[in-house]
Design a protein around this nucleic acid. Structure first.
Length: 761
DNA sequence: TCGGAAATGTTTTTT
DNA sequence: ACATTTCCGA
């Protein structure tokens, strides 16, 4: 069957309209990827050379999947020649070709967020500013936002609005830090994530011939997830597409969830006004979810004010109602989720991989891990930390970065004393000072280290180091990335150092580095694309991997329950979904309830979470939760009151529903809230003891054996003894109502009733 | 210079 | 609760 025959009318319209600007408003589950791939395949079938097609996606994973799908559709390897990837990776590749025109080396290093923050931290201290007041993360965010709006440091200092804002916030030096940061990165031959966009824009605007080259190369431009693009990306697309105007953007304003990264929903809301004769196609038929799930999603998102008008509908079954579950603690929540998964697997023959647990913050994963492990349910966490961000990997990569670009001071200082060579902080401080005084790089100081008055032991070590790096650099031209990397591992002593560490973590680190080496080997053995030889050099490799994220590394899909943030779940779908932690302050996040815009984005996030579910959806929230290591009480999320009652049920937990947890038997109290749906109230504590009206917990450090205390649940009791260490004292308390209990004092909330402690004075 | 212990901050989301 | 940073003594 031809791929066009698999499309509905709207989808087909979006595929076949290939000339002029097109906006496809693709609701959740409306077959967006299908349309994008079919469109590209269609273009190629009509004779458009893949070398002339540029497709920009949000993740590398999406790009690779699309490429593979197109190959299958066309039954050819032509798709290999498409320019397809994330904004960042495509622009990195383009910048590499012309970096010299901006004064950067072709092998420029790409700094990830951690690298950037380290550079900023150093600059803040060099400027003798207080890093508590100028927090590197905060400064980075501000600089990042500026660059994503195409504001360089000069403009930043010129525009009074920025400087005034900073001055009002009591941070007048951010402009200065920005300047130093930009200059330092340039000296280091490094671009950060934002530079890949910003410098691309500079390149295109400053060099008309470069602009001309790409305007004619990219005759057809497609952009996925357009709702999450930022002003810099917008401006670049506008430039690149100016000649042919064959721009197709695909997105869903209801799923715009990346404004914290500088994305602006305005790009998609305004697209119709940006070009003349914009064709708009709306994909409103949902193929993913049950009617109940979709109804809830539609009603929730209707609370947002600014939207492109559309209504999702489906021919799917009504499905089950959405379950809303109230629980006492995050512990209970995790147990409920694990138990329910076990039950659903048993009753309805679901596989592990049919389930996803979605949460607002990565920190929430822990309790689910514990309970899934307890029931022997295999799971996989998709956490923020990517393989390439692990310390041992970054250390090793720093060697490779220095070989390729010795000006990269960040990487150089990272490895100069790893493995330990007796080159300490004092020496390195002096070297940096020397470099700054003479306006040269630290590497150049190292190259002539004998000229400077330093400890002779350190001088010898640095000299050896320089010789080693230079020898490795000689390999660059003759050998591929893998060979260079292997030699670097040997010569530096890093591999030996890791091999000698026989601790559990040490072995894991060694294995990780071996895995890295394998990945590099794989890279060098990848087939070339037809028209051009792919660059197999180490420099080319390094520029790719910094842009890889966790989601991109997924090998074949394993049969595991998936745990991830809602952001990470964007674009995915699962038969059964748990959206957990629906509590005020957590979801919506306390950070995002100050403006309507922020709150609407949180609501879109909720919408994204709901629409991941195909068949069954559970929403959970708890009354108590750990935060910062102490219990806090939470109100149910305001989003819960926005749920349409007709599609929701709030079941009791029945005894026969969860025979899988060995802990269940101990549980006597019903853990879910009762009966018909209404705005959920906080769980009443089990009615063992009614706390006194003026109950207020006292500082646990005041507690001594012999005192009479009150506990909110257990009632009155006497402290018999206190053991454990000072940081985590454990008291044995005899309660009048519930007998002896061991209580961890720094978590428990206890009120001192009577201070007749035996040994107090 | 280096290692371990104490103190401190951190949690919103990520290319 | 955790990780990271800072402090301190050898």
């Amino acid at each position: 069957m031809h791929f066009l025959d698999e499309l509905n009318e709207r989808q087909r319209e979006a595929v076949e309209y290939i000339h002029g600007p097109l906006m496809v408003v693709a609701g959740a589950g409306s077959g967006k990827t299908k349309v994008l791939t079919a469109r590209i395949a269609y273009l190629m079938e009509r004779g458009v050379d893949p070398f002339h097609i540029l497709a920009l996606t949000f993740t590398n994973k999406a790009a690779n999947e699309m490429k593979a799908r197109i190959e299958r559709m066309l039954g050819s390897t032509e798709a290999r020649n498409l320019y397809i990837g994330t904004f960042h990776s495509v622009f990195a590749r383009l910048l590499r070709a012309d970096a010299h025109r901006l004064g950067y080396p072709p092998n420029f290093t790409i700094y990830d967020t951690e690298d950037s923050k380290n550079v900023l931290k150093k600059i803040i201290s060099e400027l003798q500013l207080d890093d508590k007041h100028y927090r590197p993360g905060m400064v980075h965010h501000r600089i990042s936002n500026a660059k994503n709006s195409l504001i360089g440091w000069e403009e930043y200092q010129q525009f009074p609005e920025f400087m005034q804002q900073d001055a009002q916030a009591g941070r007048p030096m951010i402009g200065k830090i920005f300047e130093w940061y930009a200059k330092r990165c340039f000296q280091n031959g490094a671009m950060d994530f934002d530079d890949l966009l910003y410098q691309m824009y500079v390149l295109l605007t400053r060099f008309p011939d470069v602009l001309h080259k790409y305007q004619h190369k990219f005759q057809y431009i497609l952009i996925d997830e357009y709702q999450d693009t930022n002003p810099a990306q917008y401006a670049i697309i506008k430039l690149l597409g100016a000649v042919h105007e064959n721009i197709c953007v695909v997105g869903d304003d209801a799923q715009s969830i990346y404004s914290f990264r500088g994305a602006t929903i305005q790009n998609i809301l305004q697209f119709e006004k940006d070009y003349e004769d914009v064709k708009v196609v709306k994909l409103e038929q949902n193929y993913r979810s049950t009617r109940n799930i979709l109804s809830v999603a539609n009603e929730v998102i209707a609370y947002n004010k600014h939207q492109l008008p559309k209504v999702l509908w489906t021919q799917n079954d009504e499905g089950e109602k959405i379950k809303l579950i109230s629980l006492l603690s995050e512990h209970e929540e995790a147990r409920f989720v694990a138990d329910t998964i076990a039950e659903q697997k048993y009753r309805n023959h679901y596989a592990n991989k049919d389930f996803a647990v979605l949460y607002r913050t990565n920190a929430q994963s822990r309790s689910f891990e514990e309970h899934l492990r307890r029931l022997n349910i295999p799971y996989k966490i998709y956490a923020g930390i990517s393989f390439y961000q692990r310390k041992e990997i970054k250390d090793f990569l720093a060697y490779l970065r220095v070989i390729v670009n010795p000006k990269d001071e960040e990487s150089l200082l990272r490895i100069i004393n790893y493995p330990s060579r007796g080159i300490g902080d004092q020496t390195l401080q002096k070297c940096q000072l020397l470099a700054r005084e003479q306006g040269i790089s630290v590497w150049e100081v190292f190259e002539n280290i004998r000229k400077y008055p330093l400890r002779s032991a350190a001088i010898n070590q640095i000299e050896d180091f320089v010789v080693m790096i230079k020898n490795l650099q000689l390999l660059l031209d003759k050998e591929n990335a893998y060979t260079v990397a292997m030699e670097a591992g040997k010569a530096s002593g890093v591999v030996k150092e890791l091999y000698n560490d026989k601790s559990v973590e040490g072995i894991a680190r060694y294995e990780n580095v071996q895995e890295l080496l394998n990945a590099i080997k794989e890279f060098t053995e990848m087939p070339d694309s037809e028209g051009e030889l792919t660059d197999k050099s180490l420099g080319s490799y390094l520029q790719q991997i910094t842009l890889l994220t966790d989601a991109d590394e997924e090998k074949e899909e394993s049969d595991t329950v998936k745990l991830m943030t809602i952001h990470a779940a964007k674009g995915l779908e699962f038969p059964c979904v748990f959206v957990v932690g629906l509590e005020e302050g957590l979801f919506p996040s306390a950070m995002s309830i100050n403006t309507r815009e922020e709150l609407e984005e949180e609501r879109r996030l909720f919408y994204v979470a709901i629409t991941r579910a195909k068949e069954k959806l559970w929403l959970t929230y708890t009354a108590n939760r750990y935060r910062y290591g102490n219990f806090v009480q939470n109100d149910p999320s305001r989003f819960i009151s926005e749920l349409p009652p007709a599609y929701i049920e709030t079941p009791y937990r029945r005894n026969d529903a969860v025979p899988y947890s060995k802990h269940y038997a101990q549980e006597k109290m019903p853990v879910t809230s009762a009966g018909s749906f209404s705005l959920p109230k906080r769980q009443p504590a089990p009615a063992v003891h009614t706390p006194s009206p003026d109950f207020k917990p006292d500082d646990f450090r005041l507690m001594k054996p012999g005192m009479k205390v009150e506990h909110q649940k257990f009632g009155y009791g006497y402290i018999l003894s206190i053991d454990g260490n000072a940081a985590n004292p454990i008291a044995t308390i005899r309660f009048e109502l519930s007998g002896e209990k061991k209580i961890m004092l720094n978590y428990a909330r206890l009120r001192i009733v009577q201070d007749n402690a035996a040994d107090s004075q």
